[in-house]
Design a protein around this nucleic acid. Structure first.
Length: 294
DNA sequence: GCGGCGA
């Protein structure tokens, strides 16, 4: 795999046919991936309307492109992790809704092997599809694709300048909390089994230097314990780390953001059913040390 | 050196 990261906003589109609509778009990252005889181009681009990832599949005969809004890149990463890591028997179709677009992920198989079909459907444009071969051994085609997505996801984060007020970080949270349709939808009539996406991930601890980069932290103090809430990300995606610190003991759980909404709902459930008890007891020793909420 | 998709 040849990973060229060509930065350079200058004179990128040259030599005929390169320029897409919106010639102002700046290329932040360009990568290519060869899987069997297909070539995939990954272009992270930015224009005044925002940032997006263009993924093109090229074969000798066909050329096909999907456009992933920047908020969807980490979702794509999560989904490819799911298809790489899950047992072959447990693979289902998935849907990912972002703004007005819907991406469909479907497994297929023919005599050439297994493949993952990723289709983009939007109101305005025709449906477009790329097909990623699983690869001959251990899904290495999907894994390589996943690795590129991880690189780009990371790079996209780094391209946010520290003093630049970008809407990027909140974008992820907005997509999770506001939009009912955002996130994964099981394609088959399986009961909602989003959790199977997360199972193996909570095992891996993030690299320490990744933590605290996103500048969103909260602390609460309960009795002798403190709980730290930190957003972070690693090559497997974005997560919320919740650390319990009591004396010299410390332990953490890593919650992928794809599970945050469910987590919130469950916590809300327990808040509700224990409300009387908590208010009955003195709530005095439970308090937030953060700026008060509005 | 494949070939899927969907028209």
């Amino acid at each position: 795999m040849e990973g060229n990261s060509g930065g350079g906003g200058g004179g990128a589109d040259r030599g005929g046919g390169g320029g897409e609509r919106g010639g102002n778009d700046v290329e932040l990252v360009c990568k290519t991936l060869q899987v069997e005889h297909k070539l995939f181009y990954f272009d992270l681009k930015e224009n005044p309307r925002g940032r997006y990832l263009k993924i093109s599949e090229k074969t000798s005969a066909t050329r096909s492109t999907i456009i992933v809004p920047s908020a969807g890149i980490s979702w794509f990463l999560d989904l490819f992790n799911y298809y790489v890591n899950s047992d072959e028997r447990d693979l289902f179709s998935k849907e990912l809704q972002l703004d007005s677009k819907v991406f469909y992920f479907d497994i297929g198989e023919n005599r050439r092997g297994r493949f993952l079909k990723v289709s983009e459907a939007s109101v305005s444009r025709n449906r477009s599809t790329i097909i990623v071969p699983a690869g001959s051994t251990r899904d290495e085609g999907w894994a390589a694709f996943r690795n590129i997505l991880a690189d780009i996801n990371e790079a996209s984060r780094l391209f946010i300048l520290p003093n630049q007020q970008s809407s990027e970080p909140s974008e992820h949270l907005v997509g999770l909390s506001d939009d009912v349709g955002a996130g994964f939808i099981s394609g088959h009539n399986q009961p909602t089994s989003n959790s199977d996406l997360n199972v193996d991930r909570s095992v891996e601890l993030p690299a320490q230097e990744e933590i605290g980069n996103m500048g969103v932290s909260k602390v609460i103090r309960v009795d002798q314990k403190r709980f730290f809430f930190d957003l972070g990300s690693n090559n497997r995606g974005h997560f919320l780390k919740i650390s319990e610190v009591a004396g010299s003991d410390r332990s953490s759980i890593i919650l992928p953001l794809s599970g945050l909404k469910q987590f919130h709902e469950i916590v809300g459930h327990f808040v509700e059913i224990t409300k009387d008890r908590v208010e009955g007891m003195s709530g005095a020793n439970v308090r937030t040390v953060d700026p008060p909420q509005r």
